Computed example of a mutant assay.
Amino acid sequence: MTDHGRQSFTDKVSASVKPDSQKTTGEHMGDKFHGKMDNAAGSLQPQGEKSYTQKASDTVTGGHGGATNNNSSLLDKAKHALGMEKH
């Protein structure tokens, strides 16, 4: 379940696990758009009003209110470790 205006966790994971080299221009643009919209919605929603699922999703994907300190999500760190990061 997602909070109003937020992207589901499965959508976030699906977008992040597909290598960028295999994405079309439209997919790149869609990922960027949806990521910015989700981050904006997360910024506007108070942390206390987020569902447990959305809080966990923000933490894993580096969204607003996540536990990361350097704007790198856990997924980004995993992609880096596997050599799948953006170039």
Rank of each mutant, 00 (worst) to 15 (best):
T2H: 08
D3R: 04
G5A: 10
R6N: 02
Q7F: 04
T10F: 13
D11A: 09
D11T: 02
K12A: 08
K12T: 01
V13T: 05
S16R: 11
S16L: 12
V17T: 05
V17N: 07
V17F: 03
P19A: 04
D20T: 12
S21Q: 13
Q22R: 13
Q22P: 02
K23Y: 06
T24I: 08
T24H: 08
T25L: 12
H28M: 07
M29N: 13
K32T: 10
K32S: 14
K32Q: 11
F33E: 11
H34I: 03
H34N: 15
H34C: 13
M37G: 01
M37V: 14
A40L: 15
A41Y: 01
A41C: 11
G42F: 08
P46C: 00
Q47H: 12
G48M: 09
Y52C: 08
Q54F: 03
Q54S: 12
Q54A: 05
S57F: 06
D58P: 05
D58K: 01
T59R: 08
T61G: 00
G62C: 05
G63H: 01
G65H: 00
A67L: 08
T68G: 12
N69D: 12
N69T: 12
N69M: 14
N71P: 01
N71G: 02
S72A: 04
S73E: 02
L74P: 00
L75E: 02
L75D: 00
K77R: 13
K79S: 08
K79A: 11
H80T: 14
A81E: 15
A81I: 05
L82E: 09
G83L: 03
M84K: 12
M84C: 00
M84A: 04
E85D: 15
E85H: 09
H87A: 10
H87G: 04
